[in-house]
Amino acid sequence: MIIIHEYPLSIVEHHGFRKFVGGLQPLFKVSSRNTIKSDILKIYDFEIQKTLKMLEKNTSRIAITTDMWTTNNQKKGFMAVTAHFVDQNWNMKSRIMRFIYVPCPHTSVVLADVLYDCLLDWNLDRKLSTLTVGILLDRLPMSSLMMGGRLFHMRCCAHVLNLIVQDGLAVLGDGIERIRDSVAFWIASPKRDQKFEEAARQLRISSTKKLALDCKTQWNSTYLMISVAIVYKDVFQRLHQRESQYKNLPTQRDWEFAKEICDRLQLFYEVTVMFSGSKYPTTNVFFSIDM
């Protein structure tokens, strides 16, 4: 339960939790925080060994994806390394092999060292098919790679699309910020959210979509935020007349521009969804149809 829901280890010391468990089974003795920590590490070691055996038995090559993640509060960098492969029953499988702290500076050399150590730990250095970064190519034996490593470096298509679209969204500029601020204002509290929904009902807007704030670095979330906000543009206008604290109303030009941008981004969004699939192989999309 603690692993699945990412509860803090201290939950076993909480009075309410102990009372709840006692109500279910008075004879059950709740473990201490240290015992829980030890049990979780045992589960972790067991899962590692199970995954190692599965990868050893698997005869197909392994594709690796990796990305960096930075914490908001401590600004520490972590690397996630994921293995993708097709098992003997032709089922697509993915396993997170490592989620590890990477000390600064996050240069290509540092990232390559961390990634290479991970591959050695999992005995994957001679079973690779493709990698989404190319900084390891000079460390791996060319004889173990397909076509001598010519297909080893796979550009992340979703990332390339992200760079293209981010440049396009820059055209909206302040317009996006006004829409973003408007969405943030009306979802900031349950009271405002309820007021917004009531205004939508009064204007007979039948959509059941909820406003959602985007993540600035993920254009697809910006696309979804704008596409929903456009549906409620009349609601924003009406509430601007009734709510004195709501000041950053998008202009009519902002809405027209946003609609035009959304129409163009729909295709990019659909392609990104296709590239980001996890239940089916996507490497084949890299090759042209006539190959």
Rank of each mutant, 00 (worst) to 15 (best):
L172S: 10
L265Y: 03
R238T: 05
L203K: 10
N123V: 03
Q241N: 13
G134W: 06
L151S: 08
I36L: 08
A212S: 15
G22H: 06
V110A: 10
M92Y: 10
Q252L: 07
I96C: 15
V273R: 11
Y44P: 01
D138Q: 11
S60I: 04
S144D: 13
S10G: 03
T51E: 13
D290F: 12
R264S: 09
Q245A: 15
M274C: 11
L55P: 03
H15C: 08
L131Q: 02
F275H: 03
T71G: 07
M92R: 09
Y280G: 01
K29R: 12
R155M: 11
D67C: 02
K93N: 13
S143A: 14
L119G: 00
D121E: 15
T283M: 11
R201Q: 15
R126N: 12
D117R: 12
I164G: 02
F85V: 01
N91S: 11
Q202G: 13
L136R: 04
T283V: 14
L119K: 00
F28Q: 00
A212H: 11
L267T: 09
V165Y: 02
T217R: 09
S60C: 11
E56V: 06
V86M: 12
F287V: 08
T35K: 01
T282P: 05
D125R: 05
W90C: 03
Q237D: 15
I4W: 09
A63M: 04
C262S: 07
R253N: 13
A63C: 14
V102E: 13
S206W: 01
R139T: 00
R61I: 02
I179Y: 04
V171I: 14
G134K: 05
R95A: 13
L137A: 09
R264P: 01
E177W: 03
K247D: 06
V133L: 10
S143G: 10
T51I: 11
K247C: 08
D290K: 09
T132N: 15
Y44N: 03
I205M: 05
G277V: 09
